[in-house]
Design a protein around this nucleic acid. Structure first.
Lengths: 350, 350
DNA sequence: CTGAAAGCGCTTACAG
DNA sequence: CTGAAAGCGCTTACAG
């Protein structure tokens, strides 16, 4: 970073001089204090306008020992689910007058550690993090130990009391299975997601619970892990279809995997929702416009993002650095990929 | 913003006391100065470690009248193209030791104005912006007038000399048309994109130029504007198929529109690439995994993002606040949606 | 209702 | 090689 020629920024002392008051008074006007005489206020504001004054928030933060910056660390910004989450978070922060730093770790714990350090140095008032895969349990200890409010989204960190905001993974998976059972499926697979994923573990738990409830043996149901991508979904499908007595339906780790499963089905000439039922998880925007439209567990990502933001905001403003977890509502968004709906349309297609 | 209980941050004076040196020396150690005796340096570093010191970048920035923050303003972070762009930009900034503020304007010029104000107050050293639709030409005058380096991506602002980094829209569209002509198509439509979009105007220009080159009448080729979404694409397709003597192929404003066109085709029982050729623009990650894989103009978004970042970085570090435009290379990524490739596979499918 | 003074946590000449 | 002093642009008691 070479030096740029110093720009002469106009400061409150110049405003004070122009308005014929002290800089204390300018500061009072800036914060909208009631105790400034209107005529003085107007003079100051006129000077601000005329001189093109720009408030220096950094200086103010330093003096007040408080900051209006908040951080958000996202594990994969290119994932549409994460992008929607980020937008929801950002929206709330902006509305509350905070400015969000965003950083994408691309699932790298190393990068994540750097970013956390940077954010601390920058003096963020609080932080929301969707942790990279393989994040060590102690990754946030420094931050939390220093009293910085931290909220996790989606993913939990082992053994730490950090509030988590995420959807009801167990219930979601249960709803999906129940739907498939209603439609008459008995051999249902769980497809995709990293084997070591905590979110996957929860979804799988709901999946198995629903099977057990229905008197089926949850342990006999296949669950294939995969990278949570389209390719991963397609591969998981191949694996499962190669088995003797293959399933007739799948609950997928998430929508992206489900898209991959649908792709794989179509490659084999099977129409998703006709020959094989597919249900996703998340309800990303694309799900509605997929072909066929994807039945999925809607989690209201934006809402979760907003909730996470509200939670840190409250922690910041009350000075407490703990909060309750939030388990967000989910519901089944029934569309064509699981079959059994809109029989008239299905007829027409047949 | 209520007050949080002030945290007692450890500062360089405490480090200085613990190490038995002055704070000047601590500062020197912090910046890695050569002129500190190794034994002193080690003592200081030990104190830093022991006391859990965190550098206060805000204070440093204030004193140095320089900042390590840069801003990026994105018009729609949920759009995968924009997300990839953001990631490319962020990567370069991080690598250069700057910390990027990111803001999503969701195509709102009002929001954008707020965000620009906030970033100025925060003291960003430079800014990259993909402007919201309908941004007034003077939106960046304040910033630029104050000498803040600004680079635009993708979209240009009328009548202003702000460097723009974007793909070669004209060439891209030309390549697409040329391919379709080679494949024997003669009635080719241009589908999607807002009618008032500058990017669309450029792509359309390339489209028409290619037709004219081939001796076809560019004015007789249909161009249907639409919102640049899947729905928009599907509607544009409907419009065009309803005409007498409809086209047999389409160059689409972007990949999202192209996905919508493919969706619309399939709804009508037409296989994209067999009954109707479709070419997109951008080569978002999804294009490769779409069904069928989308032929499209690859623009190397991440590379454009990195280039934009390098450009502001150079402006920041040289103190100049102009730079050349960058017109990024493009190429045609041939896949199945335009037909004419992989005849063996096509045979097998038939 | 307004001003003088101190101080937030750093860096930067300038001495020595 | 190291220290004392000034100052970045604000805010905050404290007087008056």
């Amino acid at each position: 970073m070479a030096a740029a020629p110093p720009r002469d920024r106009v400061t409150i002392v110049e405003i004070a001089a122009a308005a014929g008051v002290s800089k204390s008074t300018v500061s009072l006007v800036l914060k909208g204090s009631e105790s400034v005489r209107p005529s003085t206020r107007d003079r100051v504001n006129a000077a601000i306008r005329d001189l093109g004054y720009v408030y220096n928030r950094g200086a103010a933060n330093l003096r007040r020992a408080r900051s209006n910056m908040v951080g958000m660390i996202i594990h994969d910004l290119i994932n549409p689910f994460c992008a929607e989450l980020a937008v929801g978070i950002e929206r709330s922060f902006q509305a509350a007058g905070y400015v969000p730093f965003i950083a994408n770790t691309a699932e790298s714990p190393v990068r994540q550690a750097e970013v956390i350090k940077l954010m601390r140095e920058q003096g963020v008032a609080g932080l929301i993090i969707s942790a990279a895969r393989g994040t060590p349990d102690e990754a946030l200890d420094g931050l939390v130990g220093a009293g910085v409010p931290v909220v996790m989204t989606m993913r939990r960190l082992g053994g730490r009391h950090i509030p988590v905001v995420g959807p009801d993974n167990r219930l979601g998976a249960r709803l999906a299975v129940e739907r498939l059972l209603e439609l008459g499926h008995r051999r249902i697979a769980f497809l995709g997601g990293y084997a070591d994923s905590g979110v996957r573990a929860e979804r799988l738990e709901g999946f198995r619970a629903a099977l057990a409830n229905a008197g089926l043996d949850p342990d006999s149901a296949v669950a294939i892990a995969s990278v949570p991508t389209r390719e991963g979904g397609a591969q998981a499908l191949e694996t499962v279809l190669a088995q003797r007595n293959p399933p007739t339906a799948a609950v997928c780790f998430n929508d992206i995997v489900a898209f991959g499963v649908c792709l794989g089905l179509r490659r084999r000439g099977i129409q998703p929702g006709r020959g094989f039922a597919v249900i996703g998880f998340d309800d990303v925007q694309e799900a509605l416009h997929a072909d066929p439209p994807l039945t999925t567990i809607a989690v209201d990502v934006m809402g979760l993002g907003e909730r996470a933001a509200q939670t840190v905001l409250r922690m910041i403003e009350t000075g407490r650095n703990t909060a309750e977890d939030h388990v967000g509502a989910v519901h089944l968004a029934v569309r064509e990929s699981c079959g059994g709906i809109m029989p008239e349309r299905a007829e027409r297609r047949a």
